[in-house]
Amino acid sequence: MIMKRKYAPMILIIFTLLACGYFFIASAAAQSPTNGSVSGKVSTNVGLLPEETRVTLLNATNTSIAYDEFNTTVDNEGFFIFANVPAGNYTAYAWSPYHSEGMSNSFTVTPGSTASCGIILLAKPYYADITAKPGTVYLGGYKSDINVYVYDYMGNPVGAGWFITMHTTAGTLDPTYAETDANGSLRTSLISPESGSYAEISVYAKSSNGTYYQLQSAAKMPTPTPEPSPTATPAASPTVEPTITPTPEPTEVPTVTATATATPVPTPTPTPGFELIAVLCAIGFLAAIRKFK
C-alpha cells in the first residue's frame, strides 16, 4: 500500500503530461492551414483599367472546369484575391467589356501560401472608319480603293493581327477579309455594280471564341445613277455632228453670189451694206446705253 501511495502522484503526473501533449498536438494539427490563397492583377495593353472585369479560377489541367465559388470583380486598380483556396494547380481567367478574354499562366496553391498571377487583356475592335478613293465611282465595273481603320472602344488603333471581314450591299469587294496591320488598318477594293445609287459597307471582327460581331460604323459609298453620263455623251455628240453638216451657209452663199452677179455695179454693193450694219449697230448701242442710264 505504501508503494502504491508513493507512486500514485507520479503516475497521475505522467498521465496529465501525456494528456496535455496529446491535446497540444491535436490543437496544433487542427490549426495548421490546409488551404492557401491567390492574388493577382488584371491589366490591358492600352494602359487603361478595365471596367467590370471579372476573374474566375479554372482547373489548370482542364480549363473547361471552372470553380464558381472563386469568382470575383477586380478593384479600381485591377487587383483581386481569393482566400481559402484548396491546394492544387490553377489558372485565372478574366473577361471585361470591350476587351478580349484573357488567361494567366498556371500556378500552384500550397497550404499556408499565397500564389500570384497576372492577366493582360487586349482591347478588341469596336469602331471602323472607312475611306474611299474615289468616293464616287461610275456604274458598271469601275473600281474604288477602300481603306478601313479599326479602333477600340477608347478610340485607339487596335494594332496588328485582328481578323476583319467586310460586306457590301452593292457591287463586289476584293478581298472580303483581311488582318489589320500595325496601325490597325486594312485595304480592299469595291467593284461598282451595273445599277444602284450607293453601296453600304459593313465591317465585322472575329472574337476570341471564333464568332463575329459588327463594328460600330458603316460607310456609304455613293455610286449615283447620274454618273453614267459618260455613256450619254457619245450619244449626244453624234446628234450635234449632223446639225453641223447641213449648215445654212452653203445655201446662202449661192444666193449671195447670184445677186452679186445680177447687180450692174459690183463695187458699191458691199460698201453700203457694211456701213448700214455699222450704223444700225451704233444706233442700237446708243439706245442700249440710254436705256441702261
Rank of each mutant, 00 (worst) to 15 (best):
Y212P: 00
Y213N: 05
L215A: 06
Q216R: 12
A218E: 02
A218R: 03
M221G: 01
P222M: 02
T223K: 01
T223S: 09
P224Y: 04
T225N: 05
T225V: 05
T225H: 06
P226Q: 06
P226T: 02
E227F: 13
P228D: 11
T231G: 09
T231V: 12
A232P: 00
T233I: 14
P234S: 07
A235H: 02
S237G: 02
S237W: 09
S237H: 02
T239H: 04
T239S: 05
V240Q: 06
E241I: 04
P242V: 04
T243K: 08
T243M: 10
T243W: 08
I244K: 08
T245H: 05
E249P: 01
P250C: 02
P250H: 10
T251P: 00
V253A: 14
P254S: 13
T255W: 11
V256I: 15
T257K: 15
A258V: 03
T259P: 01
T259D: 13
P264C: 08
P268W: 03
P268F: 01
P268T: 02
P270V: 07
P270Q: 08
T271G: 00
T271M: 00
F274K: 10
E275F: 05
L276S: 11
L276Q: 03
I277K: 14
I277T: 13
A278Q: 10
A278N: 08
L280C: 10
C281K: 10
C281R: 12
A282M: 09
I283D: 05
F285N: 08
A287V: 09
A287C: 12
A288F: 14
R290I: 14
